[in-house]
Design a binder for these strands. Sequence first.
DNA 1: CCGTTTTTCTTCGCCACATGAATAAAACAT
DNA 2: ATGTTTTATTCATGTGGCGAAGAAAAACGG
Lengths: 400, 400
Amino acid sequence: MNAPTPREATRRRLLDALRQDGPMARVELGQQLGMSPASVSDLTASLLDEGILVTEDGSEATGGLLRGRPKVRLYFSENLGSVIGVWTGYNRIELRLVDSAGRSRASRRIERPLRNLSADDLMDLLADLITTFARESGAPDVKAVGLACQGYVDTRDGVVAWSPVLGTRDLPLAEGLRGRLGKPVLLDNDASAMAFALAQRDPTLRAGRTACLMVGDGVGLGFLINGELYRGARSGGSEFGHVRLRRSGPQCRCGGRGCIEAFLADYALHRDAQLIDHRPAPNALIPGEEAMATIVRQARAGDPALLNLFREAGEVLGDAVGILIQTLEPDHVVICGPATRAMDLLRPSFEAALETQTIQELRMLAAIHVVESSIDLLTEGVIIQALRELDGELARLKAA
Amino acid sequence: MNAPTPREATRRRLLDALRQDGPMARVELGQQLGMSPASVSDLTASLLDEGILVTEDGSEATGGLLRGRPKVRLYFSENLGSVIGVWTGYNRIELRLVDSAGRSRASRRIERPLRNLSADDLMDLLADLITTFARESGAPDVKAVGLACQGYVDTRDGVVAWSPVLGTRDLPLAEGLRGRLGKPVLLDNDASAMAFALAQRDPTLRAGRTACLMVGDGVGLGFLINGELYRGARSGGSEFGHVRLRRSGPQCRCGGRGCIEAFLADYALHRDAQLIDHRPAPNALIPGEEAMATIVRQARAGDPALLNLFREAGEVLGDAVGILIQTLEPDHVVICGPATRAMDLLRPSFEAALETQTIQELRMLAAIHVVESSIDLLTEGVIIQALRELDGELARLKAA
DNA sequence: CCGTTTTTCTTCGCCACATGAATAAAACAT
DNA sequence: ATGTTTTATTCATGTGGCGAAGAAAAACGG
């Protein structure tokens, strides 16, 4: 809201660098941020003073062969409370507890569909799960909660504007949870959170433009420009999964037909696999990992109908990535999420479609990464965002 | 390249504001840029000193009813040379001469296809046309040339990586022209230039994210984030027009089938209109404005086959805008270029397609503008970019 | 016609932030 | 011990921007 002072901006850059590339000595920070040792020293002095950073290097071996005064690495303090990250999937919820240094302390997975709950019931349930998890995992002092969910999210107001999972519209989820938990709640789209987390881990993804396509329960897109999430009109992610690629394609859970998601998401593959065997169409539940593994195994064994299903899915994936390349001209395209388990089945038609869909000059610029990413990484995405917010929060508290 | 000093950055912001919102007094500048009158005074003093700005307000009436010391508006000097902007279309070239204050001084349109020329011949021809135009219009002192062309452009290196118009690939156009003309040459994609120019004129387009779809000779996309052009991997615009929407659609000049362009561009509509009458398919020349006007007239008169053509084109346009909305979540979508002449024919199917393609929540956020924009505006886009560069250039010269 | 009012612009002292240079600190090598 | 090397801190300095006070330029009001 209020304009950050230049000091706050550099402070933030410094903390970001430290979070991304691990504990570092002051000289290294200076080099990386392109600022003088004097400035780093000055800035870190106050951060150490505030207790945000510690320097418990002590006996840490510096290698032995180097001479000169040893580096003193700066760490985030672990004792400034913790943050809980939550992901709400279609029929399960993942929770994770992380201390203020970013170290994972506990995690839990709960099988529980969230559909068909009233807004109040949903928020009551989530608040209950979160407090139970915090208590049972002995969370020291939960300072904030980060929540990643599918659908179209207004990250500024913390509102789920639309979601294929929760039935409701314009759900003020952050506010509701904040009221119930008494803690700040940060909301984001799950694909955005995943993209952010991946870029935190891999410096190459932070350079230039990275389009991250997460394929699993649904299809989401997170887009990064120089490591920062691109935010749209309501500062949310996009609903790229509901671009309608085939005019008379299969039914999508958004109500439309032929959306990208309707070919690629687990529920779509599972449903269409069932239809092949003339078994009754399953209800809307997302299949479990076992069910999906079975389908993949049968396809790998050579089931022609299933192979055709994956061929078509790969083609849609190629078209989708092609659209991204022609529209955004990214340096990196990341394909991640559960669907990467079947990348071998998707790849031939994926590559063929990508080739016919894109202009060669543009296609050659985009490096395509296939990353097997877990939900752990996803919760990490919102957690890091929450931790970043907290840094600023602490500074403001100290000032008062 | 080299990091701009903070001073240079604010200097640039000030000049940009002055260019966008016309001559202004110092107080107004201060309000708009959120800085104190003292700072503005300081900064403008050196700009006036360098001769970049002038204050020849003199007898300008301030309204009469206001009291107090009258505002002194700051103008760009007109006497610091001029800039030529060029647009290379499919079968014509537009040139425009503008003085250092941004006022248009002369313009010319040359009917001349550029295809099937060798790289050297092409650059010779362009250089010749530009010098002739400069001489005949009595250009005082041409400081730079801005060139907008179709296709995939590397704006940093000034290379046309790919173009459906020029047959060549990786053409170092800026360097070639710079060698021939002895002046800096700035290259950009034409849709990007158009988007930029539109946003310069209309402040609302500078707020948030604006996707500008230019439909005419081809289909191009310019994307703005907070008034600045989004730049992809090679810092160029995108080739959105060659997203393949219909797998077995009509032939596109890129070699593919079913590209957005293959439905919407003038050449496509003209070609398909000819085919209806079983006339021989025309050669690849872009039809003239008269030919297009005839087609539009016949369609308005009720020709069912032509109406169908426009219906299909509108549908593709709706799908295209839908993809943009679902992917970029823009605040504004601008449809501009010659194709707006037939917007009445396109609109019904456009709106229907847009509605089925997009999620309502997202669609409602994007304001859709249909703007009849001329090529004049397009050359203005590159010219303003060139002028902006020159400001910095002048500062560096003074410093040396 | 001359002070008063009002608004714009400038001058000046000051503060926040960052830097380079000198200095101190902490190790190893001899 | 004493130099060598690298890291961290201190301090004087410079830059950019700001608030406050004052100067300037007009209209207004007697």
